[in-house]
Amino acid sequence: MRGGSIYIERSSGLHWLHPLTKVALTALCFASAAALPGLPWLLALFVGLLLPLAIWGRLTGAFLKACLLVVGPFVLSLTIIQGFFSGGETVLFKLGRFAFTQEGLLAGLTFAARLLVALGGTLLLMQSTPQPHLMQALTERGFPPRIAYVVLTAIQIFPSFQDRAQVIMDAQQARGLELQSGLLNRARLLLPMVGPLILGSVMDVSERAMALEARAFSSPARKTSLNTLADSLLQRAVRWLLALAAAALLLWRLWSALQ
């Protein structure tokens, strides 16, 4: 489907939350990722907060899969690099001249866990919030709509690239391009794919820009929204608490670093 996105439609409490509440949550995740001191804390946050939220949002499978896909490669490369090169006493095994140390392994895993927490929060936000609603929430709070649109299309560009890639792939196959597995064949595919993809998007950009103008995008009027995003006093309070917690965490981290 063209124009799809990471968003996964479900009816759940998490989906129903105001986008900014989830943004605050994501902010807390980022602060925690930066500030929490060690692996146990980070994992505890993931298992104790993010995972339950994903279950609440009925996104468990998709959430874990996305985490694995995005963070997995980092875990692997970070542990290898750190394990071999960050030094340490406890040698676990040796590969030629290089020693793989336990301290290095721990450092690598900790770094990966920081990523996991930060990206996990972001993924949860994206999977449970239609991006247009997120942008609406931000513009309602004074975020410039032009930037919002750019961000929005940038977020959506990956899936829409994928959809477009599919369409083009179809066309090339229809003209006899064999889509077999095998690295060489995949490489051969690249040009006929990338060509129209890029050309198409460049063309699209000017045509789309025009189409946007035709839809009064640069109208001086104050923008309104078709749908009101549901909000509540409780959510507002929770948002403030989350933001405060995030700020506190960062301050605490800064303070202990200065000590």
Partner: peptide
Amino acid sequence: TTAALARRVGFLFQNPDDQLFE
């Protein structure tokens, strides 16, 4: 496969931009 069928069936798409790239 579609590529094999292409020897027998030629196809003009509704939207030409879906197929042009050279």
